[in-house]
């Protein structure tokens, strides 16, 4: 194979890996949208918040330390050495459940039957709230998140791919980050677990019932409020996983919530109600933007990844508004 083909393959592979990350965030959107019809803009910030909290627990930060210090002139930083990663993850999960409960209790409950666009704007408010809160609680500096996953380039893969190159060409093998492979694996496990959960548990069945028809679910005695808390908790869990992956990759920082914005075009492609759609959409966007940047980017000044996903989604919307897997919308009077 010629180096050009090999380079293209490398770009596609890396695109797939990025796509997995997008899919992870998009998954959280789909879960909430299916169960409550809410387009949760805050999903990305939820990932950021989860990652911040996890690092906070891991390293033993005192919450709101710098706020307290600035106000009272004290000097608190850490309450100890920090804790075991597993314990920190569990505690973070507990925080996310608490958050889900609070969101239901303080916001969603009062917005029942509002138009979707109002709910959407409310989640934008929630996003700003959480972003500010996360920074106040744990500080705005970029943090390193290490949960013990291996990272760095895979030498084995480099060696393997080097032999693929045609005789006499200069080719040094493909680069692939082990962390990305792990992330992909974890994403697959996550999807399988979620599918099993929704197919074989009672809560899962209730979730699907609510997704199908709110009214009907209410009449058979499913509590919508409980379901919402459950769904937001699951979305929080998915956000935590996404946060860990993104955080381990590029540090826990504000830009995480911006990257998570890319989940929106992913959803447009995949449809808002389809879990396979979210995954395929994520992969398409991931590969698409990397390939576009690789092939066209240099000609037009680069950094096309900033907008490619959105413009792709825009074209998609013009021709297939319901997404790849969404159902056709029939309008009625």
């Amino acid at each position: 194979m010629s180096p050009v083909v090999l380079n293209t393959i490398e770009v596609i592979l890396n695109g797939l890996m990025t796509g997995v990350m997008y899919s992870l965030v998009a998954l959280g959107f789909v879960l909430i949208f299916k169960a409550s019809g809410i387009f949760n803009y805050a999903q990305g910030v939820l990932a950021l918040f989860a990652a911040l909290t996890l690092v906070g627990f891991q390293t033993g930060q005192v919450p709101f330390a710098h706020v307290i210090n600035a106000t009272f002139g004290t000097d608190y930083h850490h309450w100890g050495e920090g804790m075991n990663t597993v314990l920190a993850i569990l505690l973070t999960m507990a925080v996310m459940v608490l958050l889900a409960w609070l969101v239901e209790r303080l916001v969603l409950r009062h917005l029942v039957n509002q138009e979707p666009i109002i709910l959407f704007m409310a989640t934008i408010g929630l996003a700003f709230f959480l972003e500010g809160l996360g920074d106040l609680m744990w500080g705005a500096n970029i943090k390193v998140l290490d949960v013990g996953l291996p990272s760095g380039g895979s030498f084995w893969w480099e060696d393997v791919t080097r032999t693929w190159a045609a005789e006499g060409t200069e080719y040094w093998g493909m680069y692939i980050d082990v962390l990305d492979v792990w992330a992909a694996g974890i994403a697959v496990v996550l999807v399988v677990v979620l599918t099993l959960f929704s197919q074989y548990t009672e809560t899962g069945r209730a979730l699907r019932a609510v997704a199908d028809d709110h009214q009907a679910a209410l009449t058979v005695g499913i509590s919508l409020r409980t379901i919402w808390v459950v769904v937001w908790s699951i979305a929080g869990f998915v956000a935590l996983v996404a946060g860990i992956m993104w955080g381990a990759k590029s540090g826990v920082q504000f830009s995480l919530s911006l990257i998570a914005l890319k989940a929106l075009p992913v959803l447009i492609l995949g449809g808002f109600t389809s879990i396979p759609g979210a995954i395929v959409g994520g992969l398409i966007i991931g590969v698409g933007e990397k390939l576009f940047e690789f092939a066209i980017g240099p000609m037009i000044g680069g950094a096309t990844e900033n907008w490619f996903a959105y413009v792709l989604a825009l074209f998609f919307l013009m021709f297939r508004p319901q997404g790849l897997f969404g159902e056709r919308i029939i309008e009625r009077v």
Partner: peptide
């Protein structure tokens, strides 16, 4: 008044505005 650094005030305003948005919509 409190001697907070500016970026912290900025985050506080985020919290405040986000909260207000939800409050007004509700």
């Amino acid at each position: 008044g409190f001697g907070w650094p500016t970026d912290m005030v900025q985050h506080f305003i985020f919290v405040l505005v986000g909260g207000l948005i939800m409050f007004f919509l509700i």
